[in-house]
């Protein structure tokens, strides 16, 4: 498990807590790219339009939030692309950014785009704010310490509120940290995006199994994907998927891992004698113990 960084670290230090040089480099690259975007509006538009419109569109599809929702974006950045795209869709958005320069830059951009009626940018650390007001909270791809921020945000959410964040695809996992949404909530989803990102959604539930609870059982809890051939375990959390549920893959049921198919094909499991093929990416989000 990664350690939380000490609080006195400079806010300009974006390296990972365990000192991964590649990670720190790519993160700086990302930041400087964003800064360039602020200076050159044309480049900014291009970067923003091409990538983020699609990204947000797909995220809104999985998040499915009402138009009158109040939305926060943690780590909105120098060029607050997520904020702009959400505001354009008509949401009221609060951007949170701990870098003073980024706050200044992004406010200017918001004014230029005439979105100031719907958008507020606040100079805050994502961990020091009350989230119970918001219906949905977006969290930027490269925030750190990611797991800490995600946990704090999710804990502060009101029931039914949604947290949307971005994980790296496998290729980038060495540079950016990844947190699976099934850790937070049974109601979760993932959506593969372009440019090495996977969007993740976790919805706050009332009788939710919290991150800490899972953490206590870390040794015994694993995902269905991690089972050994022939091993049988009880499902403790499972995405809300009508077909999965009907095939008997539900909380409290014993699932046996029968075989797996080559070339990234599905896993074959059996529940009470009934066999089902389950895609690896879905199996990843099924927790068993």
């Amino acid at each position: 498990m990664r350690q939380n960084p000490s609080e006195n670290k400079s806010k300009y230090d974006f390296s990972l807590p365990f000192g991964d040089h590649i990670g720190s480099f790519s993160k700086r690259l990302l930041k400087s790219l964003e800064k360039t975007c602020c200076r050159s509006d044309c480049f900014g538009c291009l970067y923003h339009d091409k990538i983020y419109r699609e990204l947000i569109k797909n995220e809104l599809e999985i998040a499915d939030i009402d138009l009158d929702s109040k939305v926060a974006v943690v780590g909105s950045g120098h060029y607050p692309m997520t904020v702009i795209e959400l505001a354009k869709k008509g949401f009221r958005v609060v951007g949170l950014e701990r870098d003073r320069k980024a706050v200044k830059n992004s406010r200017e951009i918001i004014n230029e785009k005439k979105l100031e009626d719907n958008v507020k940018i606040r100079h805050r650390d994502g961990r020091d704010i009350e989230y119970s007001d918001f219906d949905a909270v977006w969290i930027a791809f490269s925030v750190e310490p990611k797991k800490d921020i995600l946990t704090k945000v999710f804990d502060g959410l009101k029931e039914g509120a949604k947290m949307i964040y971005r994980n790296p695809k496998e290729k980038l996992e060495g540079c950016f940290s990844s947190v699976e949404p099934s850790r937070f909530s049974k109601i979760n989803d993932e959506e593969e995006q372009d440019f090495g990102k996977i969007s993740a959604l976790a919805v706050k539930e009332s009788d939710d199994m919290r991150f800490e609870d899972l953490e206590n059982k870390t040794n015994s809890v694993k995902s269905l994907k991690e089972l050994e051939l022939g091993e049988e375990k009880e499902v403790i959390s499972c995405p809300d998927h009508s077909c999965l549920n009907a095939l008997g893959i539900r909380e409290g049921k014993k699932v046996k891992f029968v075989t797996e198919q080559p070339f990234g094909g599905p896993l074959l499991v059996s529940v009470e004698g009934r066999k089902a093929a389950v895609d690896r990416d879905i199996a990843k989000n099924i927790a068993v113990a």
Binding site: E54, E192, D194, H241, C243, L244, L247, P266, L268, R274, K275, A276, A277, V278, D279, D281, I282
Partner: peptide, 11 residues
């Protein structure tokens, strides 16, 4: 931009 289909299927 085909979104991949994730299989859940009874055997």
């Amino acid at each position: 931009k085909i979104k991949e289909t994730r299989m859940v299927q009874e055997v």
